[in-house]
Nucleic acid binder design. Sequence first.
DNA 1: CGATCACTTGAACACAGTCAACTAAGGTGG
DNA 2: CCACCTTAGTTGACTGTGTTCAAGTGATCG
Lengths: 203, 203
Amino acid sequence: MIRLDPGRTLFDQGDAADFVYNVTAGTVRLSMTLSDGRRQITGFMLPGDFIGLSSRAVHSYSAEAVSPSQLCRFNAPALRQMAERVPGLEHELFARVRDELDAAHDQMLLLGRKSPREKIATFLLDLAGRRQRWGERPDRVHLDMTRGDIGDYLGLTLETVSRTLNRMKRDGVIALPSAAEVVFLKTEVIEGLAQSQVPARPG
Amino acid sequence: MIRLDPGRTLFDQGDAADFVYNVTAGTVRLSMTLSDGRRQITGFMLPGDFIGLSSRAVHSYSAEAVSPSQLCRFNAPALRQMAERVPGLEHELFARVRDELDAAHDQMLLLGRKSPREKIATFLLDLAGRRQRWGERPDRVHLDMTRGDIGDYLGLTLETVSRTLNRMKRDGVIALPSAAEVVFLKTEVIEGLAQSQVPARPG
DNA sequence: CGATCACTTGAACACAGTCAACTAAGGTGG
DNA sequence: CCACCTTAGTTGACTGTGTTCAAGTGATCG
């Protein structure tokens, strides 16, 4: 069991990929950085998600805690051993990687072709949907990451994220009781903006 | 064995994913489309690449031939049967999906954070690198897709693709003997622009 | 209570998108 | 064989949107 304070690094781009992790609490961001500091967050990992399943010998991305997080660590032999004992585990892990790939394709569509409003709408619905599986309310979502993180996930600047959220608030589509709390007022509108390909992945 | 003329569809977004394909000749584009026609190409599949490995029951993207193409088709039972006979095949297929995921992460970095010049440079080097494995010259690359296809792959308009290529030509970085033929004149410059994370995937 | 960090908001700018015209290449049919 | 048509590519002018730069507000924590 590993505990990580917000901002702490689990591993860095280029580190040996000796372990696979399962998030049990908190939020972990996976990111890639160019030499001049430009950053792309490739995913926010929530409880239940695996980290490092896709990596070969070396991690191609960094993993850092966004909020206080806990993770289970598995080394390769232990994982192989477990796969032998638990029937269907291998298939489950394979399915997880496939789901990640599907999600990556959706994100490519978002990054390449969606407007800031559409990006934010898609992001909010995705996050709310994933949290809903753990009993959270479907009509609101807590953002434990900063505007900068969201921007680096959606291919926007933090200013554009802020402006877009506040414009949606002004338009009566969402409410922002606090900077980290988003309430969906017109879910149909948000869903229309998102045009989500994803039909709610099971998990 | 399936033959596809340029522009023909192998399968569409939403079709049942009953088969897995291996490209043996030509180029196939995988794309996702929003209701208003905006399109994102998630990948160009070249000889040796598998299509449909990542799909669940239904394809989340369409597959169309870019150039005259040939593919081998496998249904799920045949694939399972083959996996039992050929040792290491299952691992190979799993590795392919992981590589695809890695490539998808790189593409997210490209789409979210790279400039048009950097996008084009990355694209050219990637394509040349993949073709090199089949004996093509490493200092040039043939583009069998249109400027529009390239734009939809890189999150740009076709005009920006054209302008960027011609500006790189004017700058003496590349030569364009024809619209479909790119010659690398200053490979160091192109590599610098690309800042490729990818250390040449084996295959 | 002061310092820090996140967020918001405004103003100006720049860059890629849009619209449009034109050129080039390839294919078809008279 | 040439004329025509279609499709792809190039190039220019203009526009608009998201970025950049900057200032100011608000919340949290030692």
